[in-house]
């Protein structure tokens, strides 16, 4: 279960990788989308949603904030931040030359990730399409959602999980009949009222008067 609102992040335009210069129209079949999290504190990603558009394989690589240096260790040089591969060549189209899967909606969730995505500084989606059949390939409607842990389901109300032990016996209250009978009648009353409520007409008779505005005393003064 992802939280309702996607993470606010910047998704850059896909960049086509070329072997040589722009004149050389070599079809590399590889594009890269960079995602940054400029204004998010502790960005962590639980799910990636998107709509495929002729991408055959998806690789997700991420950069994480370096862990705080341990007190004992030598913290002189800034530790190098490496790109880590979180999802490797996930197959989106069963066969790159065929249409199947080319327009599907995907949800890459934690079970696809190699590790938890937290303390992110950047994310890079690598799209691959080896087949030259398709004119273009990209991902649409990319949305990132937070981890599901941060969104625990609401606890069940007490009356739902309480033990049924007190339902046996001892339900006598002085001066009145059985609670069961009263409860049954009350429930019937409820049912009748709901029945009526759902059968009320919406048709207007065409009355224009608002309550009280035709009060004779008011009219005589205006």
């Amino acid at each position: 279960m992802a939280s309702d609102r996607p993470i606010h992040c910047t998704i850059k335009n896909p960049v086509l990788l070329n072997i040589a210069d722009a004149k050389n129209e070599f079809h590399s079949g590889c594009r890269v989308i960079d995602i940054t999290f400029p204004n998010v504190t502790n960005p962590e990603v639980g799910e990636i949603h998107f709509k495929n558009n002729y991408v055959a394989y998806l690789t997700v690589r991420i950069k994480q904030k370096p862990a705080p240096p341990e007190p004992g260790s030598d913290s002189s040089g800034t530790p190098e931040i490496k790109w880590r591969t979180c999802v490797r060549r996930m197959r989106l189209m069963p066969n790159p030359h065929c249409e199947a899967g080319s327009q599907d909606y995907f949800c890459v969730s934690q079970k696809h990730f190699n590790f938890d995505l937290n303390q992110l500084t950047g994310m890079r989606l690598i799209l691959q399409q080896p087949s030259p059949v398709w004119k273009d390939f990209r991902l649409e409607e990319i949305k990132l959602y937070r981890s599901s842990e941060s969104n625990r389901p609401q606890p069940l109300p007490a009356w739902l999980i309480e033990e049924a032990s007190n339902s046996s016996g001892k339900k006598r209250i002085e001066g009145i009949g059985s609670v069961d009978a009263i409860s049954a009648s009350l429930q019937q009353l409820w049912a009748l009222s709901e029945g009526v409520a759902s059968n009320q007409t919406d048709r207007a008779l065409g009355r224009f008067d608002v309550d009280g505005c035709y009060e004779i005393n008011l009219l005589s003064y205006t």
Binding site: P157, W159, L160, A164, N166, S167, K171, I173, V179, D180, I182, S183, L186, Q187, W190
Partner: peptide, 12 residues
């Protein structure tokens, strides 16, 4: 919840 409240347990 209302259903429970009108049930024997809730009423009791």
């Amino acid at each position: 919840e209302s259903g429970y409240n009108l049930g024997p347990d809730g009423l009791y």
